[in-house]
Design a protein around this nucleic acid. Structure first.
Length: 840
RNA sequence: GCCGAAGUGGCGGAAUAGGCAGACGCGCACGACUCAAAAUCGUGUUCCCUACGGGAAUGAGGGUUCGAUUCCCUCCUUCGGCACCA
């Protein structure tokens, strides 16, 4: 601070007393609220509870404006709920494990733990500067041993319940992050790593999985939860349920070939079979003459990346194995091919090919000159014989032909049993023991293992004699050693540690080794909402009394990007825990709302590398937290987001300053007492605003809350000019105004409430104002009069005027008379209180 | 290709239940205050025309209706997701 003369300092402070100076004032209140424990959430059976949760951040270093956008509107809504009389829990924590800190450590050698906890400390300070009502005594940090002890414990519970298993399988591996990824973490057509954008490769590794697919059907049910349609659709597509039949074909040698089909009604049209090149039966069935060609094709397919292989527009290729299969429905002898358009990862890795009714099979059959047999024909054409060969696969409705005793059966375009043809065939297949009704999913089990250091250890021990066993409860947590070397090897750094992995077998006590992979961080975030309930509790993951009071989460907010990741994992996790008797209810989060994204001013994505990131700390220094908070709520639709506009914030800054002036200047001389009319109008506007603000808080429409408050302020300035200061209506307006502002701009509201209105501290412990319907009602209203659909006049009538009264007022108006030109209106429509429409 | 969301002034956006399109704010223009600037305050600001009047307009076209940003159909554009899924 520059040195000033005493006099200059005094006059500066005198000026400060008058003008809006948020910096000191905001800090003062933040400290007082903290000291008074204003936002501690304690079980209180006398009040209804509200658990408001917003997705916890990864401690990347500094809060950016996107964090603020995701936290402030929910914070103000949580504050609103508090004023509505709810006992509100609004906690915050850190998703503190993860690759970023470890990758940084590889570069500069700073230990991930040191970096992470330093970042957390910085972000805590920044969050406090926002004036949020987070209950810091509930804070949970997933990288602390007291937290990840329970992450490990949950793993063991799932393992004991048979929901965790180890399997060797080809998995997606990011060569940059040096770790495997769950399928959800591989994005887009180019199959890149969700975190760093590097194209993933396939690697066959022994890995731990959770049996999430057990819950596929239940995860498709959303009837208990109020979630955005968007998220439900994304999850539904991700799970990718399809109904059909599994049918057993046989090789000529008698081996079973299981296939899945959604079209069992076309079984009679199967003219060949296709195996994925990796299918286990390929080597067995291939004839000596075809061996070389098959081997070559397999090599070629293996060398291709998934991207190349899955390119849709690619011309189909394949090779005949020389072997034949028997179609169980008609004993037809059909050739077995291999082709890379069949994926080992979906269904059984083998298909029956029905070229007449499947576009892909049709293209393949055309290319390799395989037979095409039509088994569905449009009704009416069933008897007709085609002169020309089929030009394309027919996938429409019709009747079955060439299908033995099913000839004539109607088939529509419905899936599964809703389709009469499919239903009949399914029954028959089951009766014959050839196949059965079956459901297939796109959804996969959740791959948990990560070959990284900075994560919760997988608490399993391997003994040569007793295999895999969980670490005994009394040895939890398995803590991470601090002295490790970070090398980008693709192996877990824990594996390279000289001693850490050495332990003893929990069964026999002989030397054994620990699992050296760590868990996917989505495991940590699948239950953090439970840890918030009692972050210091050590007899279990959470205190049951807290659980019983607070759960489930009432309102959950966060970004849409987690639709098929975190939001699906946490639902699975909750359901699994429910079945283990650990949690209750079917869903962890009842209401979900997603905020949009704050883009850079040029409409591009904000990123550190582009240098277009808006730094909220600077904005807070310049404008104060209240202004930044208000602007974040005002500048865009919260659920949409928008490009940042650095000039726009001047508007909310002006609003706040004008509110300040309005409240601190009320003592100035203003004209004579206001008319009854003025006072009544003021009160009406106050209650109308209250109605709107209340409704908008309920509906997450934050931008119009600020608009409404701006409008009311303008009205109050007018009322002040008209002499309303000092009246009961004025006092009510002031009180209501600050209470409505309080959730949005907590500091200025408190300052004006406590120090200028002299009301009892704290405004944040006040109840939301009570709405008076009769006060909000208009006395007289202006109604537009349309003539042939165009507004030609406005009439003023009393608000409760009846139809006849409105009609005659409209018809006798001079302007209307002019437009009618003496003619009788053909029709007069009165929309009560809204509009008159005259047709001539 | 399939699924979903969204298209309203120069910009962000508003418009209970089909009823005055453009609230509120940014920006811009002009004015007041000032030696001046900033701040502040005031006025105006969808577009077009022959401007105290009239016309057009909510991505385009059609439909229902006295009346459509809102409901229905077709199409276009942008964004997001999935994708040889059998």
């Amino acid at each position: 601070m520059p040195v000033k003369t005493k006099k200059a300092a005094e006059s500066a402070s005198a000026r400060q007393d008058k003008s809006y100076q948020p910096q000191m004032m905001e800090k003062k209140w933040q400290e007082k609220w903290e000291a008074d424990r204003l936002y501690r959430s304690v079980i209180d059976e006398s009040k209804p509870k509200h658990y408001a949760l917003t997705m916890l951040p990864y401690p990347s270093g500094d809060l950016h404006i996107g964090h603020w956008f995701s936290m402030i509107p929910p914070d103000s809504r949580a504050r609103y709920m508090r004023m509505k009389g709810y006992n509100v829990l609004f906690p915050m924590g850190f998703d503190a494990f993860g690759l970023n800190a470890e990758n940084a450590a590889i570069k500069d050698g700073i230990h991930p733990m040191k970096r992470t906890f330093a970042n957390i400390e910085r972000m805590r300070k920044q969050m406090r500067s926002m004036g949020t009502m987070f209950d810091w005594e509930r804070e949970a940090v997933s990288a602390e041993p007291s937290y990840y002890k329970w992450t490990e414990w949950f793993f063991i519970q799932l393992y004991k319940a048979g929901l965790a298993y180890r399997k060797m399988s080809p998995v997606d591996f990011c060569p940059n992050c040096n770790t495997t990824l769950a399928r959800e973490q591989v994005w887009g057509e180019n199959r890149v790593c969700e975190r760093c954008g590097t194209p993933v490769i396939k690697k066959a590794l022994d890995q731990w999985f959770f049996k999430a697919t057990n819950y596929a059907d239940e995860l498709l049910r959303f009837d208990e939860i109020d979630w955005p349609e968007r998220v439900k659709v994304l999850q539904t597509n991700w799970i990718g349920r399809s109904e059909g039949a599994s049918v057993i074909f046989k090789t000529e040698a008698g081996d079973d070939i299981g296939i899945f089909t959604t079209r069992p009604d076309t079984l009679w049209g199967a003219t060949f079979m296709v195996f994925a090149p990796e299918h286990p039966l390929v080597d067995k069935v291939t004839t000596p003459e075809q061996k070389q060609a098959v081997e070559d094709y397999k090599m070629q397919a293996a060398r291709q990346s998934d991207i190349e292989r899955e390119a849709v527009d690619k011309e189909k290729t394949g090779v005949f194995t020389g072997a034949y299969a028997i179609n169980p429905v008609n004993q037809a002898r059909i050739p077995i091919w291999i082709a890379d358009y069949v994926m080992m990862s979906y269904g059984t890795g083998a298909i029956m090919a029905v070229p007449a009714h499947d576009e892909r099979d049709f293209a393949f059959a055309k290319k390799y000159d395989l037979p095409i047999v039509e088994v569905i024909k449009p009704e009416g054409e069933a008897g007709a014989t085609h002169e020309s060969p089929l030009q394309a696969a027919y996938i429409g409705e019709g009747v079955m032909v060439n299908s033995g005793l099913f000839n004539g059966t109607k088939v529509n375009t419905e899936k599964g049993r809703k389709n009469p043809g499919i239903a009949k065939v399914l029954d028959w297949l089951e009766a014959q023991g050839i196949g059965k009704e079956s459901v297939n999913y796109r959804y996969r089990d959740w791959l948990i293992s990560r070959q990284r250091y900075w994560g919760a250890p997988i608490p399993m021990i391997h003994c040569d004699v007793h295999g895999w066993n969980p670490v005994p409860d009394d040895q939890l947590p398995v803590t991470l050693p601090e002295d490790v070397e970070w090398k980008p090897t693709g192996e877990s750094p824990l594996k390279l540690h000289p001693t850490w992995k050495n332990t003893t077998c929990p069964v026999c006590g002989e030397p054994a080794t620990r699992e050296t992979d760590t868990m996917d961080t989505f495991m940590c975030s699948s239950w953090y909402h439970l840890r918030y309930l009692s972050p210091k509790y050590d007899k279990g993951p959470f205190d049951e009394a807290e659980y019983n009071y607070w759960m489930p989460v009432d309102t959950y907010t966060g970004g849409i990007e987690h639709a098929t990741m975190h939001l699906l994992y946490t639902r699975f996790f909750h359901k699994a825990l429910r079945d283990l008797g650990i949690t209750e209810g079917n869903e962890p989060m009842m209401q979900l709302r997603n905020q949009g994204m704050v883009l850079a001013e040029d409409n591009s994505k904000m990123s550190k590398s582009k240098g277009n990131v808006v730094a909220p700390d600077m904005l807070v220094n310049k404008y104060g937290a209240d202004t930044v908070r208000a602007y974040l709520m005002f500048f865009a639709r919260w659920e949409m987001g928008a490009p940042w506009d650095s000039q726009g914030i001047e508007g909310t800054a002006r609003w706040i300053r004008r509110v300040w002036t309005l409240f601190t200047d009320s003592a100035s001389p203003f004209p004579a007492p206001a008319s009854e009319e003025t006072k009544k109008n003021l009160r009406r506007r106050v209650h109308q605003t209250l109605r709107k603000v209340t409704r908008d808080f309920e509906n997450f429409e934050f931008n119009t809350i600020i608009s409404a408050l701006m409008e009311l302020m303008n009205e109050m300035y007018k009322a002040r000019e008209a002499g309303a200061v000092g009246s009961d209506e004025w006092k009510e307006a002031q009180e209501f105004y600050l209470k409505m502002m309080a959730p949005v701009t907590p500091h200025i509201a408190e300052e004006l409430w406590t120090n200028h209105l002299g009301r009892p501290y704290s405004i944040h412990q006040q109840l939301w104002p009570e709405f008076d319907e009769s006060a909000a009602k208009e006395d007289v209203i202006e109604i537009p009069v349309q003539i042939n659909g165009k507004v030609r006049d406005r009439i003023t009538v009393s608000a409760d005027a009846g139809e006849e009264e409105i009609k005659s007022a409209a018809l006798t108006s001079e302007t209307v008379q002019k437009y009618l030109e003496g003619k009788e209106p053909r029709k007069v429509i009165i929309a009560k209180g809204r509009l008159v429409s005259i047709v001539v």
